[in-house]
Amino acid sequence: MSTPFWLPIETERLLLRDFREDDFDSIHAYATDPEVVRYMPWGPNTLEVTREVLDRNLERQKTWPREELSLAVEVKATSEMIGSISLHDANSDNSAFGYCYSRDAWGKGYGTEAARALARIAFTELGHHRIWATCDARNHGSYAIMEKVGMRREGHMLKNLKARDGWRDSYVYALLADEWRAANR
C-alpha cells in the first residue's frame, strides 16, 4: 500500500492525518461529552465503542484507496488531537462529508479550516463531482461550517432521523466541483 502524496494534509494551523493508537484518549474525551454528541446520531461512547471506532479506522488505513477517508485533526502548535473529519464513500464521485470536534476547539475556526482543506482534496486529488453533508437543523455550528466552505443548503428533511430527544429535522448541504473551482480561482 502506498499512501497518497497529499496525506497528511497540512493547513496553516492544522494537520489532518491518519489516526494513531495514542489518539484513543482524545477521541474518547470528545465522544463522551454530552454537548459534543448532542446533535449526533451516535454517542455518548462507551470505552468499548471508542475502541471499536479507533480500531476500525486503524484497519482502514492499511489500504488505499479507502472506502472511507477518516482523518484525525491535530493542532500543529500543540500536537493536540481535537477531532476528526471524513469523506464517506471516498471512492465515489459523490461523497458524504462529516466532522466532529472537541468542545474546546469550537469557535476557533478549526472546523472551517479543516473542511476547506478536505474539500480541496476531494475536488483536486480525488476528482469528486460533489460533496454533501447533513446535520441536525438545530446545529448552527455545523451548518455554519458548511456555509463558510461554500456549501449550499439543498434541502430540509422533516423528522427524518430519530435522535435522543425525538425525531429530528435535518438540513442537507452540498457543493459541486464546478462551484468550488469558481470560488477558488
Results as ranks from 00 to 15, higher is better:
T134K: 04
N57W: 15
E59G: 08
P4Y: 05
Y101T: 01
T50P: 06
G43V: 04
I145E: 00
M40A: 14
G111M: 05
H156I: 01
A174R: 04
E68N: 14
L158T: 13
E125F: 03
G109K: 07
E21Y: 02
S95Q: 05
N139W: 02
S79N: 13
T11C: 11
N184M: 00
D33I: 10
L161W: 07
E179R: 07
A163L: 14
K148Q: 11
E35W: 10
P4F: 06
L69I: 06
A183L: 11
P34Q: 09
T50S: 15
L15P: 06
E113W: 10
E74H: 13
L175E: 01
E35D: 13
A77N: 06
D22T: 14
V36P: 07
A119K: 02
W64I: 04
A96E: 15
F24E: 10
S70C: 15
C100Q: 06
M151A: 03
A182R: 14
S70E: 11
S26P: 07
F5V: 08
E80K: 14
K76N: 03
G107D: 08
T63D: 12
E68W: 09
L15G: 06
K108Q: 15
S84I: 01
H88A: 12
A31T: 08
Y30G: 11
L175P: 01
G109W: 08
V73L: 12
M40H: 09
R17E: 07
S70H: 12
H88C: 07
L14G: 09
D178Q: 14
A105Y: 06
C100K: 01
E52W: 10
S2P: 05
D104C: 13
S142D: 01
R168W: 07
W132K: 04
L15D: 04
V37Q: 09
L15W: 08
Y110L: 05
S86Y: 10
R153N: 08
G43T: 04
M146S: 01
G107M: 11
N91F: 03
E68K: 13
P44T: 00
W106F: 08
Y110A: 05
S70K: 14
A183H: 09
E10W: 07
G109R: 06
E113C: 10
D93K: 10
W132T: 02
A105T: 04
Q61E: 13
R51V: 03
N160D: 13
V73H: 10
L71M: 12
E80Q: 14
T63E: 13
L16S: 13
K62I: 00
R138W: 03
Y173C: 00
N160M: 07
I85S: 03
Y171E: 00
G111C: 08
M151R: 01
T112L: 08
D55I: 05
F123K: 02
Y101G: 02
Q61K: 07
S70Y: 09
W106V: 03
L126A: 02
R153Q: 12
D22K: 13
H129F: 10
E68D: 15
W180D: 02
R38D: 00
L87A: 11
G43Q: 06
S79C: 10
A137R: 04
L58E: 10
A163C: 09
M146C: 02
V73I: 15
R116P: 04
S84Q: 13
T124V: 07
S170E: 11
T32R: 06
A122S: 13
